[in-house]
Amino acid sequence: MIEYRSVGKTFSGGNAAVADFDLVIPSHTTTVFVGSSGCGKTTLLRMVNRMVEPTSGQVLIDDVDVASRNPVELRRSIGYVMQASGLLPHRSVLDNVGTVLRLQGVSRAETRRRSLELMETVGLDTALADRYPHQLSGGQQQRVGVARALVTDPNILLMDEPFGAVDPIVRDELQAELLRLQRELGKTIVFVTHDIDEAFLLGDQVVILAKGGQRAQVGTPADILAAPANDFVRSFVGLDKGGRELHVEERDGVQVVVDAQGRATGVLKG
């Protein structure tokens, strides 16, 4: 469990990225921070592995304040995936996947074995093991990024707009893959995105953030759609312009669900 207790962050320029933020992130679920740029979502994410230090309040993992932990050790114990994968350009795919194991002093042979295993887990052809990152497609690089984050079998996985830089088809694929992995692995995932559809697809708990890290609404996607807390949320999730309104049309006794543009999207089952 990850817990934010009245967390604030004011950067040296004096602007408050986050103020008095409280949240509980239950274990083995996916929590998505979603909001426009400048809402503090990445700042909040990076507080979990001390890449950003709060100026007030505490962040706790299983009731232990992360500020009391050695930052380097803490980071090695938490998986981290970022946009454009952040892979080391001078190391092969296999070495990139095994990076943290080597940092933890795991032997070369064991690192190799577990890295190859992880490549398979995330759906990467092991024939790519000796390539360098720049020789892979964007989607493949992102899978390497996920494999690298999972190789130590961490309890927590932090994902900072991991699928932001790939084309929509590959993004759909990677999202489906992440859902499959999460069903198998049951990690505590904290995911940052500006895409509300991605948030609703992946999140068990969705945190909609307004400027300055204010919680506009926290809940399951269904909760939020059923009862948007205010106009900001209504507009952010696309309820204001009717974009999410579906209605039913009957055809020969079958109830067909039609979206706002009049496109048939499915049938209603009794």
Binding site: R46, N49, M51, V72, E73, R75, R76, Y80, M82, A84, S85, G86, L87, L88, P89, H90, T99, V100, L103, R148
Partner: peptide, 29 residues
Amino acid sequence: VSPAVLDSARASGFGAAGLALRVELPLAG
């Protein structure tokens, strides 16, 4: 050396010395 690569290496758990010798030095190569 790309700041994004350095940031990601730090977030993966490279300490200061490891970052300088095993990431910055080879990438400046």
